[in-house]
Amino acid sequence: MLKMIVCMKQVPMVSDLPWDPITGTLTRGAAEGMMNPACKHALEAALLLKEKHDGHITAITMGPPSAEEILREAIALGADRCLMVSDPKMAGADTLATSFTLARAIEIFCPDFDLILCGCHTSDSETAQVGPQLSEELDIPSIASVESLELREKTLRITRVSDHFLETLEMDLPGLVTIATGRFIPRYASMAGLGDAFQDPGILTVGARDLGLDEHDVGLKGSATRILDIFTPVGRKENIVLTGAPKKIVEELFERFDDAIGSVIRKDLKAEK
């Protein structure tokens, strides 16, 4: 039996980003959540392995109580078990604190895992750091941004593109991978799956105390970084609109932006005097 863990995060839907255009800050409370797209790909990769290798999947998320929704979604898609790590003390965690907390939860509630799968990055903070840091915290090998994987016995063979190199790598389990978006197109939930998710999905919820953690270890207090502010990059684009006959437009474009374009193509675009 291949025992897998998929770590997932609830993120705000990007299309209706809840920022206040005047103060430029996020109003997180108002955000409607969804499963982070890359985590969906990670779950899909786990489901494919499960079909092939008699696997078992535990979905884990750390987040506010509302994040339970994505665990239900994971059950509907085929996860077997869920763990919700939630505690007001854990709010404001950076990747150091998040990976620390997840590692403790995994050690206590699913210590005998073979493979951990994470999304390669989240759509909100986009750090791509939690997966690699979790592997350090658990002292297991890891490979990031995996595009294909194949399991033989207890050895995972993966391919990925890393800085223009197509790499084929092998890793003995237990280990961790983060899954690139692109391959592993997520499936839709079946009716049977939805039924399971809406009956009692049996989600185990644990807090800092269940993990034997002090408030100084988790959340903002356990974090090394501090956010000074969040703002919209205002005034970045002037959005100049040009209309009229194509020939006139093009002349105007070069009159105003000959330097901006010329400096990049390394040509003098000034009109002949």
Binding site: L96, T127, A128, P132, Q133
Partner: peptide
Amino acid sequence: ATSFGREFAPRLAKRLKTGLTAD
């Protein structure tokens, strides 16, 4: 923030127990 850097730096930061800002 190359593919390599984005895998290497988080793991280094974790070992050093320090903060890291991405990208």
